[in-house]
Simulated scan of single mutants.
Amino acid sequence: MALDAPTEVADLARHARNVVVLTGAGMSAESGVPTFRDAQTGLWEQYDATALATPRAWNADPDLVWAWYQWRSALVRRAAPNAGHRALADWSRGADVRIVTQNVDDLHERAGSNVVAHLHGSLFAPRCDRCGQPFDQIDPPDEPAERTPPPRCDSCGGAARPGVVWFGEALPEEPWERALAAIANADLVVVVGTSGVVYPAAGLPSLAREAGVPTIEINPDVTDLTEQVDHIWRTTAARGLPILAACAN
């Protein structure tokens, strides 16, 4: 049986001209990128992902944390944008569709979308942990290792750290301001694949709703955001977004 968008959801997509899509880990799950809730595999099955993604873990064992992020980078490099990523790029041909993502992968960009803000940084933007100097692209190794010494900074001798926002760190100001500006200019906000438990990103749908901007959640599961949005569609990104984009175009 063909899947149809709920009537009110389809109508909102059809008439929206300035769309903000807030994406979380569920957006990339159908590309084979594991979420933080998924069990680790291989070398990493004994580790808790949330424990590795902290300044404390980095300070205690940077070789371990760097190796884990190199493994994650390699996994993303092997992944491909799914139908949901591609649908958002298609939607942007008929409307101003701006992506605000909590994901640290580059699948939106590879699908052809305009990413306004990577709120939690990027796997592919390492920087010095001492002076903040950006590093050139560092290709992950062909074979994963449990410990890999990070490259050293030519300027100060510090270590290259992953260019992501760890638990306990503040969001970079510039991406956050871009996200707020996008929400302020939107006439529709679509929230896809995010559990709504990580703030301040999880507060964006409520800000939109308070400003009178209609909000839609696309997620197969009930989340902490479900009661903060106007419309709910229980489906996945790869199934729902192509239909929504077709309604809009």
Rank of each mutant, 00 (worst) to 15 (best):
D142N: 12
E143G: 00
E143H: 13
P144A: 09
P144F: 02
P144G: 09
E146N: 05
T148Q: 15
P149H: 03
P149W: 08
P150Y: 08
P150Q: 02
P151F: 03
R152W: 00
R152I: 10
C153N: 05
C153H: 05
C153D: 03
D154V: 14
D154G: 10
S155K: 13
C156N: 13
G157C: 02
G157T: 01
G157K: 07
G158D: 03
G158F: 04
G158V: 07
A159V: 12
A160V: 09
A160E: 12
A160H: 07
A160M: 13
R161P: 01
R161V: 10
R161S: 10
P162G: 06
G163D: 10
W166D: 09
W166V: 02
W166R: 12
F167G: 07
G168W: 05
G168L: 05
E169C: 08
A170V: 13
A170C: 11
L171T: 10
P172K: 09
P172L: 00
E173W: 12
E173Y: 06
E173H: 13
E174P: 07
E174M: 11
E174S: 14
E174N: 11
P175K: 05
P175Y: 04
W176F: 13
W176Y: 14
A179H: 01
A181C: 00
A182M: 07
A182E: 06
A182G: 11
I183E: 08
I183P: 07
I183W: 04
I183L: 13
N185G: 14
N185H: 13
A186M: 06
A186W: 09
D187V: 11
L188M: 00
L188T: 03
L188Q: 06
V190N: 01
V190R: 02
V190Y: 00
V191T: 02
V191P: 00
V192Q: 00
G193K: 00
G193P: 02
G193S: 05
T194I: 04
T194E: 00
T194D: 01
G196Y: 03
G196Q: 01
G196R: 00
V197R: 15
V197P: 02
V198G: 08
Y199N: 13
Y199R: 14
P200Y: 08
A201V: 06
A201Q: 09
A202N: 09
A202F: 09
G203L: 08
G203F: 05
L204H: 08
P205K: 03
P205R: 05
S206M: 15
S206L: 15
L207Q: 13
L207G: 01
L207C: 08
A208P: 03
A208S: 11
R209Y: 03
E210R: 15
E210V: 12
V213R: 09
P214G: 08
T215D: 06
I216K: 08
I216A: 06
I216G: 01
E217V: 05
E217A: 04
I218Q: 01
I218V: 15
I218D: 00
N219Y: 09
N219G: 09
P220R: 12
P220D: 01
P220I: 04
P220E: 08
T223F: 10
L225T: 11
L225A: 11
L225F: 10
L225Y: 12
T226H: 05
E227M: 10
E227Q: 13
E227I: 12
E227G: 02
V229S: 04
D230L: 04
H231V: 00
I232D: 07
I232L: 14
I232S: 02
